[in-house]
Design a protein around this nucleic acid. Structure first.
Lengths: 386, 386
DNA sequence: TCTGAACTGATCATGATCGAACAATCCGAC
DNA sequence: GTCGGATTGTTCGATCATGATCAGTTCAGA
């Protein structure tokens, strides 16, 4: 079917019918996130007929909010001569944006940034990059070379010496820079860098507490140290374990980085074995996709979810697709993008007098089936409460 | 009177007929919580006819508080062409504000808050309190009792069990609460509390680095543990010492709390003696007033400032009054107030869907005479640079 | 250039929602 | 008690949102 779309944050895709206005908003979200949409895909996703979507597209096209193309729509393009002649086209700012991925997580951040930019008559120029400092820098440089950019939103790799060097370079750029989902570490005083990031440690803690409240007393954690957020997830999980008086040393804590897809099954088997040995009945799994794979594996092996193994995912990109649907921590991705644009535009217009802002946002916990009911065979379920 | 409707869950469907104003309030609550409502559902829930709800929706739509759609209403959407082009129609919120002092530091915070509130046509009701949790709570309670408050900005005492209890209480209030210059500690998951605070650790680090750059190689710190910011100042100072490879163990670190004014002179003499013994040529002094007194004392004792003792104050309230004028870290007090009002109004109008925001602002370093020129008798001044 | 597949827009049908007019009710003032 | 204004409920034709059908159009590959 469709390639790994980014399922919007509707929680239940076809569960509730939306009003037409909301549908058009969703459509614009999708458009801002990916730059284009197909009528077919959106119709399927929203559970309405293609005709309806086409009507929406027409409406938005009349208002000049989209450009119609055969089979779908794109963001308004200057090449589109049918575009309304209104010409409120006076963009005050151009903001460059470099993100490490255009498939996962970041489309929604971009969507939020674009939405906010629209309201502020700014333009966002997005470039996809990788989780690698050298490439990050190259992409930023490319933006600076080819475009007249007033500000920059970046989600760079900040690990290692290359990452620190990149931060120093960003800090020294002549235009304002806002980091998205990254923090400038204390030890390098990049005093000009502002940032907005989700408090992933809080999210992990929230998930852990939720599992505790459902009756689990041994809660493991599976992460992927390739991802910059993993460290925060582990930190939050450990912190929560401490608060709940769960001995961290005996808790399952596995890193899935560097496990090739071919070895995944045995990796999961090993983890399940560990869980059995340690009486672990619940896992917090960083990166949703990993969580989906893990739940799938559990089902394949006859391990009941959530009865024998409760799972909470992280990121909430695809968690709702699994069977059973997976509870997941949902970072406020749209808001991260919005806030980044707010910070950048405020900085551009107010100048250096404005103090450096550093914002943390708390994620939400979306509870679905995979974590409800507590450990089935456990005698102490629900006897306590936090 | 309406006949007893079908028994609804939880709410009070038939219990008591609401006044229209309450109904609309309820309607907005529902809207903020879910993003949209259907006329039918709300009518059933409130036990009134759909027409009534429709009339309410019309009214709210005229005020620009909702967007009308066929079958219900949504939060105001930029796609809503019928939206009144007038202005954001910022409602007149009443915001309570409880600060621990009305003479020092806080007047500027209040001033910033007032300025921001004026722009948003909101009203600020300020109450002075003390650095004591019990009194904080009393003042907040008084505000809640006597006024109709939509939101609360508080700078409470958060130390000890009383402080934690106060935070829990604030977190459970039915109206939004924003902490000013305070952070909710991680170990107590006050998940609803938002805050805006100056990054005092950053400020202390900046001051320490400044003194290093001026040539000082032993940098002490004088704080007042009565103040909630002192801990952060010490933390930032220690962090900077670490980064600069200055052994913290041998550095002068004095607490002026509990030193009565009568004993101040000998306290300062003791500190000066310590400095002489450890070759300390610079001090970071928390609380400006203390810094002024200290510089005065140095001058009285014939210790040259900055030649023999460089001083950087903290807070920048009265630092410029001293002779010589004292360099000081200046927290962005106005912005703290402004941002607190921004957070609270955004929270009131956007409801719980908006993620919890936690903002840190970086302070400035205002360099005056008291820290310039480096240690006079030092041989290694300016030989290094960071 | 041709051709099949995919896309598009016009038209109509259907069910739900909306608004205007009028009736019923409640509330406070005299 | 009763009067007037404000609020709410009822009815019914008008309006709107959506989907189905089908003929016309566009696209992409041969």
């Amino acid at each position: 079917m469709t390639p790994p779309q980014s399922p919007e944050q509707g929680a239940e895709p076809a569960g509730k019918s939306l009003f037409s206005l909301q549908r058009r908003e969703r459509l614009m979200d999708e458009l801002r996130a990916h730059g284009s949409i197909t009528v077919r895909a959106i119709a399927a996703e929203l559970g309405v007929s293609e005709l309806t979507i086409r009507r929406d597209v027409n409406l938005l096209a009349v208002e000049g909010l989209v450009s119609r193309v055969h089979g779908g729509a794109t963001l308004p393009s200057p090449l589109d001569r049918t575009a309304s002649m209104t010409r409120p086209q006076t963009n005050r700012y151009s903001i460059g944006m470099v993100v490490p991925s255009l498939d996962y997580y970041w489309p929604q951040v971009i969507s939020g940034a674009r939405a906010e930019a629209d309201e502020r008559q700014a333009k966002i120029l997005v470039r996809g990059s990788t989780y690698d400092a050298a490439d990050n820098r190259q992409q930023v440089q490319a933006l600076l070379n080819t475009q007249n950019i007033n500000g920059l939103i970046v989600a760079p790799d900040i690990t290692g010496e290359a990452g620190r060097e990149l931060l120093r370079w960003l800090n020294s750029l002549p235009i304002p820079v806002v980091l998205a989902e990254r923090r400038s570490p204390i030890e390098i005083p990049a005093h000009r860098l502002e940032w907005v990031a989700t408090d992933h440690a809080f999210g992990a803690g929230m998930a852990t507490r939720h599992l505790w409240q459902e009756g689990h007393r041994k809660i493991g954690c599976m992460t992927d140290s390739n991802s910059p957020t993993s460290a925060h997830v582990v930190r939050g999980w450990l912190q929560a374990l401490g608060a709940l008086r769960i001995p961290a040393a005996q808790s399952v804590n596995e890193d899935s980085a560097h496990v090739p897809t071919s070895d995944r099954a045995e990796h999961f088997d090993r983890i399940l074995q560990l869980c059995r040995e340690t009486d672990t009945t619940a896992m917090l799994v960083h990166s949703d996709t990993q969580a989906v794979a893990f739940v799938q594996h559990c089902v394949d092996r006859g391990v009941d979810v959530p009865g024998s193994m409760a799972v909470v995912g992280y990121d909430d990109e695809v968690a709702y697709l699994a069977e059973p649907a997976i509870s997941a921590v949902r970072p406020p991705k749209q808001y991260v993008g919005r806030l980044a644009v707010q910070l950048i535009t405020a900085r551009i217009s107010e100048g250096p007098k404005r103090p450096v802002h550093r914002v943390q946002l708390n994620p939400d916990l979306i509870v679905r089936d995979s974590s409800l009911g507590g450990p089935r065979s456990s005698a102490h379920a629900l006897e306590d409460s936090l």
